[in-house]
């Protein structure tokens, strides 16, 4: 369980988050939705300590981010985007490294097969398409076997087949008890996959349970009605 209390953050003088509190239970997929520039990636970075939040209390299964950082990070995986992979290393290099560092028991070859990466897992990252890199990134999440996964816009650059494949894998991870916090702009996918959704607005999170409602309509209602009124 990821518990966050008193999380505030400003970039220079611009407030991004103000006293945010929430809890993510095990075996859940939570969507994180907001227009560009609102602070989704900032929130994900704060949750794993890439940005400082000295006043906040962030714990993962009772482990404090501040005082038990390595143990905390052992249960979490976050890599902002496939653009942050090592260009000169192969997919296999990345996967083996994650396996070693997270001391995971997940089989690398099986994951490669599951994601149908056999044809390119020995190629260097710089020679891959965006879709292939997204697969490599997802494979790293799977290999880490971390309990909590913070995933930033994983569906970017994917074709419909791959999107279905990713959604299927997300479902499998949830079934295995993993917690996924997934930022996305693809509201149809959010509606299909997520158990609940955090809409990020006015430096706060609005938590909405997914009951099968039209997520795009909800997004429009929350973000675009006000924007239209301002115009």
């Amino acid at each position: 369980m990821l518990a966050v209390a008193g999380l505030s953050f400003s970039f220079k003088d611009k407030p991004i988050l103000r006293d945010v509190n929430f809890t993510l239970e095990d075996g859940q997929i939570v969507g994180l939705v907001a227009p560009n520039g609102t602070g989704k990636t900032t929130l994900l970075k704060l949750l794993c300590g890439l940005l400082p939040a000295p006043a906040a209390t962030i714990t993962l299964n009772g482990l404090s981010l501040r005082t038990q950082r390595s143990a905390f990070l052992k249960q979490l995986f976050f890599l902002e985007s496939s653009a942050h992979l090592y260009a000169d290393l192969t997919v296999r290099d990345h996967l083996l490294y994650v396996k070693r560092m997270w001391r995971s028991r997940v089989d690398v070859q099986a994951t490669i097969k599951q994601l149908q990466m056999e044809s390119y897992y020995t190629k260097r990252i710089k020679n891959l398409s965006l879709g292939m890199k997204q697969h490599a990134l997802l494979a790293m999440y799977m290999i880490s076997d971390a309990q909590t996964m913070l995933i930033d816009e994983p569906l970017n650059g994917l074709d419909p087949t791959s999107i279905q494949q990713f959604e299927h894998i997300f479902g499998g991870l949830r079934a295995a008890g993993k917690t996924l916090l997934v930022s996305s702009h693809q509201m149809d996918s959010v509606g299909r996959v997520c158990d609940q959704v955090f809409f990020m607005k006015d430096q706060a999170l609005r938590e909405v349970a997914n009951t099968g409602q039209d997520m795009m309509a909800l997004y429009t209602q929350i973000f675009m009605t006000e924007a239209a009124a301002n115009v």
């Binding site: 794993c48 300590g49 390595s70 990070l73 979490l76 995986f77 890599l79 902002e80 653009a83 942050h84």
Partner: peptide, 14 residues
């Protein structure tokens, strides 16, 4: 410079 430092900083090690 390349942004890969975030990955390093997220590793579960000192």
């Amino acid at each position: 410079h390349d942004g890969t430092i975030d990955f390093m900083n997220n590793l579960p090690t000192g």
